[in-house]
């Protein structure tokens, strides 16, 4: 038996759920609709009130000139036309993309490693607790603590660097600011993400590892051939969530660099916020948000398609 047999386990096509018994004709069309409505209703109400309505309203506002305090005035697509010529918007996209790539790569790799180590090495609650600790601290405070620790002249990190005989590092200078901020956010979220992956790892039946072990597959091979494919639904979740979360990075930047120096950290969300609340240009901010929304939806769609998030190799095993 090779490890491939695990992957070859029978599975249903994507997006479908096995039906135990052949249902009567009417039920076939409606399926479980009555029960489903019951189950989804509370969430649907929350969705409609607190997400859908604000989003629709935002989409409308993107077609207006709106300064928050006086009623919006409809101006058609003017905001979107302006957006294409807005140098700061394109710069913000570039900076954000840079941040997202750095943050996602470091966070995913470290979290995955951490989750596997936690899973394989120890059952210690203390270790698991420690790993989750940074997430207990609010974003803003995490940013402040690191800002203080990384301070060029006073920070403990730079003191150590100098003590080791190197030159002090301007962590929030125009070249390093984005990598630094990505690092700080990785620090805060790695335990959280590792825990998500960890929960996914624990859903994998021990039998598949036993099968792989009997095959004599190396740990490395088992990881790539068995663990990772079985983790797919969870990894899809993790990736989609972290990409969306990274695109919306804001707090850390607001606390440390405020978009500077020279716009080096003016990420898209910070730009939107600045436009809406400091410059009362809410209509334009709404247009930027709509573009961001479409962009994120597109990325998430591609991610979900690529990762075939709707299916699990485990089903029917």
């Amino acid at each position: 038996m090779t490890s491939d047999t695990v992957r070859a386990a029978p599975r249903t096509p994507p997006g479908t759920v096995p039906e135990p018994t052949p249902p009567p004709p009417l039920r076939r069309r409606l399926g479980d609709l009555p029960v489903a409505v019951l189950f989804v209703l509370p969430a649907a109400i929350g969705f409609a009130l607190f997400y859908l309505w604000p989003a629709v309203r935002g989409a409308y506002l993107s077609l207006t000139r709106y300064n928050v305090l006086t009623p919006p005035r409809f101006i058609g697509l003017e905001n979107y036309e302006k957006l294409f010529g807005d140098r700061l918007f394109w710069n913000a996209l570039k900076v954000t993309a840079e941040y997202v790539v750095l943050n996602i790569v470091s966070q995913t790799v470290i979290s995955m490693l951490l989750a596997v180590l936690l899973y394989r090495l120890t059952k210690s609650m203390v270790v698991r607790g420690i790993v989750l600790l940074p997430y207990l601290v609010a974003n803003v405070v995490v940013a402040l603590v690191w800002f203080w620790m990384l301070d060029f002249q006073l920070g403990v990190v730079n003191n150590v660097i100098e003590w080791l005989g190197f030159d002090r590092v301007a962590f929030f200078g125009s070249d390093l600011a984005i990598p630094t901020i990505a690092g700080i956010n990785t620090w805060r979220h790695m335990g959280y993400t590792a825990l998500l992956i960890f929960a996914g790892l624990q859903m994998i039946p021990p039998s598949v590892y036993e099968a792989a072990a009997i095959d004599g597959a190396s740990e490395w091979r088992t990881f790539w051939r068995v663990t990772l494919p079985l983790l797919r639904p969870v990894m899809a979740l993790v990736m989609v969530l972290s990409v969306i979360g990274s695109f919306q990075v804001f707090d850390t930047i607001a606390v440390t660099t405020s978009g500077g120096p020279i716009n080096a950290t003016r990420v898209i969300y910070f730009y939107i916020y600045d436009l809406a609340f400091n410059r009362f240009n809410f209509g334009y901010a709404a247009a930027l948000s709509s573009v961001l929304f479409v962009l994120l939806a597109g990325i998430a769609y591609v991610q979900l398609r690529l990762s075939r998030a709707g299916e699990s190799d485990l089903r029917g095993s």
Partner: peptide, 20 residues
Amino acid sequence: PTMDIVSSGVGQIDAYGAGK
């Protein structure tokens, strides 16, 4: 101090307090 140092610092007051 250079802008890189300034933007990598928590603030003028603290740096002054540290004798920098």
